[in-house]
């Protein structure tokens, strides 16, 4: 069974890194993965999208998928066009700091990623918060694999961010678990 996840946001939010880390973590966990990023020339502020497909066999899906299992929305700008691809029952993760979560009554997993990152003094790390929440909720890959893949994926000039990113991943995961407990209570 192939799981297609589309990350959407704007340049500077770490969209490409989130997708790369998730794909690498899936491969490290012994699964197959495909990763394709589409972004404009603008390094900051322009639309940024990346697709990850995870499966247990060589991936059949093309890198521009007709339908997806989940959308991770860090910013609302490109979201409306993308929503049509979300399968019925698909999971929408929304960065509720920036994205209006009242979307056509769809099931939304709201994560205040940008706010939580800001509170940690690292607004650029919102993507890590969201990724932590995503894997905690979906369990597509274990969080430890994601942390390890994040450390490996950082370029040399960003390795000093590794511990802070690990903390943000944990923060996002913890947020989901707390919310699930609250929901169960």
């Amino acid at each position: 069974m192939e799981r297609e996840i589309v990350f959407t946001g704007i340049g500077g939010q770490g969209i490409q890194l989130m997708a790369k880390v998730l794909a690498q973590a899936a491969v490290d966990a012994g699964r197959h993965a495909m990763l394709f990023g589409l972004y404009g020339g603008a390094m900051r502020g322009g639309p940024s999208e990346s697709t990850v497909v995870i499966g247990d066999a060589p991936i059949e899906a093309p890198p521009i998928v007709p339908a997806c299992w989940s959308i991770v929305a860090m910013h609302p700008s490109a979201l409306p066009a993308l929503l049509a691809k979300l399968r019925p029952g698909g999971l929408l993760f929304a960065n509720e700091t920036l994205v209006d979560v009242a979307l056509d009554g769809r099931a939304v997993v709201p994560v205040p990623a940008t706010r939580l990152a800001e509170e940690s003094g690292n607004v650029m790390g919102a993507g890590m918060v969201m990724l932590g929440a995503f894997v905690a909720h979906t369990a597509v890959v274990p969080l430890e694999r994601v942390v390890a893949a994040m450390r490996a994926a950082l370029p040399p000039h960003r390795t000093r961010m590794a511990d802070a990113n690990a903390a943000l991943l944990a923060r996002g995961a913890e947020r989901v678990r707390t919310a699930q407990h609250a929901g169960a209570a």
Partner: peptide, 9 residues
Amino acid sequence: FLLSHTSEL
């Protein structure tokens, strides 16, 4: 372009 830029296992 897609072959060049798509990452796979």
